[in-house]
């Protein structure tokens, strides 16, 4: 799988994020670092569509990365509307692409 991680950096040096863990995204396992935002782990794995809008079912991904715009909301461990750009990764988390407002009947994309 292609990675978008910046492993080496001319100023910041070698990558030193948290402990490597695994999380599940729509049933697939990806690797992540504990404590990093969920959105960072997803982008690193090349996942760019996080949810579909309620009325027009348009794709949305990360826009602001600081918790302001709500474009990055997903269902995290069963809870919908979680802003993944400011929610830290924990080992074994289950993440789902959110459709609409993520009500139970809409949970599957």
């Amino acid at each position: 799988m292609e990675t978008y991680r910046i492993l080496q950096h001319p100023i910041l040096g070698e990558i030193q994020q948290g402990k490597p863990v695994e999380i599940e995204v729509d049933g697939k396992t990806i690797s992540a670092f504990e404590g990093e935002p969920i959105a960072a782990a997803l982008l690193a794995a090349g996942i760019r569509v996080f949810r579909y809008t309620t009325k027009r079912h348009e794709a949305r991904g990360v826009f602001c990365a600081i918790g302001r715009c709500t474009d990055c909301m997903m269902i995290v461990d069963g809870i919908p509307n979680v802003r993944t750009c400011i929610t830290p990764v924990k080992a074994g988390m289950k993440i789902q692409t959110q459709v609409g407002l993520g009500k139970p009947q809409e949970m599957q994309p």
């Binding site: 492993l7 994020q17 960072a40 982008l43 690193a44 794709a59 826009f63 602001c64 990365a65």
Partner: peptide, 18 residues
Amino acid sequence: AGVMGAGAIQTLVNVHRV
């Protein structure tokens, strides 16, 4: 998806290394 703010990108690249 893929249209982003510059601050978002600065955060992802320099803080989260993605």
